[in-house]
Simulated assay, not measured.
Amino acid sequence: MNHMPLYWQFVKIKLKAMADYRSSFLIITFSKTLMWAVEVFVLWILIDRFKTIAGWSSYEVLLLFGLNLSSYALAGFFFYHPFVYLPRRIQSGEFDEMLTKPMNPFLYLLSREFSTGYFSNLGVAVIVMGLAFAKLDLGLDWIDLLFLIAVILGGAMIQAAAFVFAAVPAFWITQSSSLSRLMWDFKGFIRYPLSAYNSFIQVLLTLILPFAFINFYPAQYFLGKDDFLLFHPSFQYAAPLVGLLLFLLAYRFWRFGLKHYRSTGS
């Protein structure tokens, strides 16, 4: 906690650089916004073609998309660059230099690599969620709004933990990108309702790789659905707790990996 003021100074530097090169930032933001808009359009066309997916309407599936993308954006700001590129830094020896700093390596890595490239993701997610709530006529009182914020933060911690879990094996397996791709391939399943899949996928995405807590189970609360499949209805409230526990577990995994790290000697 003593280093948090320093961390925010690093973030301010990144934001200042964004302001200094605003033309580049605006072009990148526009292109990414267009990319996500196209993805939303393709998803809409797919659902409209089949009318419903496992009993979920178009706007209900868009709510799943918005919850997923908003939490991914929050995690991406802080965790994408530090951990997606960690194997490359280990191979080059750059990570060894980070270990010489008088600061927690985890926090130092996050400080150096804050990304400003996720404002487009967050903007599209907010628009999609707002559209879904409006079209489904889902009024939010202040308790619902607080729970929505908690759900998004919980989902962000789940996604951040996934970044960490996917990167840490690089401490032992220099080429660990295949493990990372496999994890994120499974995350692609949550674009659609979990009820569209068989029991194996439902258990996998709930208990092994708990990505379903990012959007599927919380959506039950807002939509008033009773679509809990193999699991208890209380799971609709569990996203913040699952996110916190998973993030703490990911950090312990990081500490374990760091303790047993051996430099590549590059």
Rank of each mutant, 00 (worst) to 15 (best):
residue 249 L to I: 11
residue 180 S to T: 15
residue 7 Y to F: 15
residue 52 T to W: 03
residue 129 M to T: 02
residue 103 M to K: 10
residue 245 L to I: 08
residue 233 P to F: 10
residue 6 L to Q: 10
residue 98 M to C: 11
residue 250 A to Q: 07
residue 145 L to Y: 11
residue 185 D to S: 09
residue 215 N to P: 11
residue 46 L to F: 11
residue 27 I to Q: 06
residue 8 W to H: 03
residue 206 T to Y: 02
residue 230 L to Y: 12
residue 150 A to M: 07
residue 250 A to W: 02
residue 118 Y to T: 05
residue 126 V to M: 10
residue 163 F to D: 00
residue 103 M to H: 08
residue 255 R to C: 08
residue 136 L to M: 14
residue 103 M to I: 14
residue 200 F to P: 03
residue 8 W to K: 00
residue 266 S to V: 04
residue 207 L to W: 14
residue 49 R to Q: 09
residue 101 K to L: 11
residue 95 F to G: 00
residue 115 S to F: 12
residue 3 H to D: 06
residue 226 D to K: 13
residue 194 L to E: 00
residue 266 S to K: 14
residue 142 W to G: 01
residue 164 V to I: 15
residue 193 P to D: 13
residue 175 Q to W: 12
residue 207 L to D: 02
residue 3 H to Q: 07
residue 143 I to P: 02
residue 185 D to I: 06
residue 209 L to P: 01
residue 79 F to T: 04
residue 198 N to Q: 14
residue 144 D to R: 07
residue 171 F to P: 04
residue 172 W to N: 05
residue 178 S to G: 02
residue 213 F to S: 01
residue 71 S to N: 12
residue 55 G to K: 08
residue 35 M to L: 14
residue 182 L to N: 05
residue 159 Q to V: 05
residue 78 F to D: 01
residue 203 V to C: 07
residue 211 F to P: 02
residue 219 A to L: 15
residue 230 L to M: 13
residue 200 F to N: 06
residue 195 S to Y: 02
residue 185 D to P: 00
residue 248 L to S: 13
residue 6 L to W: 01
residue 193 P to Y: 08
residue 254 W to L: 11
residue 68 N to H: 11
residue 68 N to T: 15
residue 136 L to P: 03
residue 61 V to G: 04
residue 9 Q to F: 00
residue 87 P to T: 10
